[in-house]
Design a protein around this nucleic acid. Structure first.
Lengths: 241, 241
DNA sequence: CTCTGTGAAACCATTCACAGCG
DNA sequence: CGCTGTGAATGGTTTCACAGAG
């Protein structure tokens, strides 16, 4: 998972389940690919395969949006693309700022997937004065001093944090004070935010650690014996790394 | 979530729930910070706050690992760091290859969080011959032709894919054929893998789309009326973007 | 008397299986 | 007759609340 905190609680009646929301972008991507190949309709089975889920789940997901399919036929690709885009709020333009233009920030600025789907990089912000004015992905980097003005002037409500961990909380607070209410956090820290602000977290090393866990289980299938309680899995005198 | 497919089913008895595994790295990070400040013990309440979860969940999570706490006192920081590290398989060294050294691949190679926790970047691989030999993060980039040899020679079982979407499936297949059994995929595609191979996916644009969904709900709290079925939310003549 | 460890309850998500529409 | 849409069954996760260890 890559989600932070602050997930809309059980409030809101006609709500779409979080798990479903998280899959809509996947369906949208698969549908866009079909649309580009001018495929007119698609069955739940086919679309599910393209999105990497099973068809029952997909149909249940779509049932939360409404009845957009045709029994015996499938779904109209163009129509679904539009309905999902609208549901996700992608029919409007979302200006985004990226704070922290190191290696990762630059990668994000250059990432085509942003611009393609309703997101527009409104500004790049970095604390290093030496970066100021230098263009990254064709956009000039601005100094952190300008942060509040940039947010306000551009009506930015989504911010991306790709600073070092130490700077993240402070940047987060300034973004929120200036009006940002959704944050995508790449810094390896827990961000504390007030109610009403959504945070999603993407953490590279966490993902690797989860893989390592499963990887370990693959090899150690056999002599797995003692692992619980007591001084069997005891600590060595010298700590590893 | 950022997980792909292929999650170990209900097999394996004494298994730790996936949701718990996904949080262990969070606890570990919080504990490491405490350890660096030489804090000897911590209560479930304090540690939970530092990790951004609630304390009941944390205690339940730890209960799957064993009884590592002391009632009335809390947890021994150093001891827990070791136990969680061991459970995650971080007491051993994991050589990793990164395939696709564009902006993102370079960012990953430079990312300190890898090296710090048992992961070692064994090689950087790119399809562009012009990149070959050029050092990134102090490691020379090697050509894709070398992929199989590199995997074998270094005993790599974890691969990171940061290529363009079009190349990802093919790279994935070569990695698997060469012996990789865990993949962290940054390319915006669904990877098809055989059983026994774990895939986790990190998708920047998907995270943003999920934020946009919630963001949209914040403003449109009022005039939300019609959204279901029928030709109310009908498609415009011209498709957006 | 504090704080862990954990059954039991509540909640959410996935899967099954099939009625019924086109 | 094929495929969607959906109740009902199942399985997993979170939260509650408290017994009992230290």
């Amino acid at each position: 998972m890559a989600t932070g905190r602050n997930h809309r609680p059980a409030t809101r009646s006609r709500g779409i389940p979080e798990a479903t929301v998280a899959r809509l972008p996947l369906y949208l991507r698969a549908l866009t690919a079909l649309s580009e190949r001018s495929v007119p309709t698609v069955s739940s089975e086919e679309l599910a395969a393209a999105a990497g889920v099973n068809s029952a789940k997909l149909r249940k997901d779509f049932s939360y949006l409404g009845s957009y399919g045709t029994r015996g036929v499938g779904y109209d690709v163009e129509y679904l693309v539009y309905q999902i885009s609208r549901e996700l709020g992608l029919t409007q333009d979302w200006p985004v700022v990226i704070v922290g233009i190191g290696n990762l920030g630059a990668a994000l600025a250059n990432y085509g997937g942003f611009a393609s789907r309703g997101f527009r990089v409104a500004a790049l912000i970095d604390a290093d004065p030496a970066m100021a004015g230098r263009p990254v992905a064709g956009i000039p980097v601005q100094h952190t001093d300008e942060l509040e003005r940039i947010i306000t002037d551009n009506g930015v409500s989504i911010g991306v944090i790709s600073t070092p961990a130490g700077a993240a909380q402070q940047v987060c607070e300034r973004l929120i004070a200036a009006g940002v209410t959704s944050i995508l956090n790449f810094a390896p820290t827990v961000l504390n935010v007030p109610d009403g602000v959504d945070v999603r977290k993407v953490d590279l090393s966490i993902e690797l650690q989860i893989l390592a866990f499963h990887e370990q289980r693959k090899s150690g299938e056999d002599a797995e014996g003692p692992a619980r309680k007591g001084p069997d899995g005891d600590m060595p005198a010298v700590m590893p790394a």
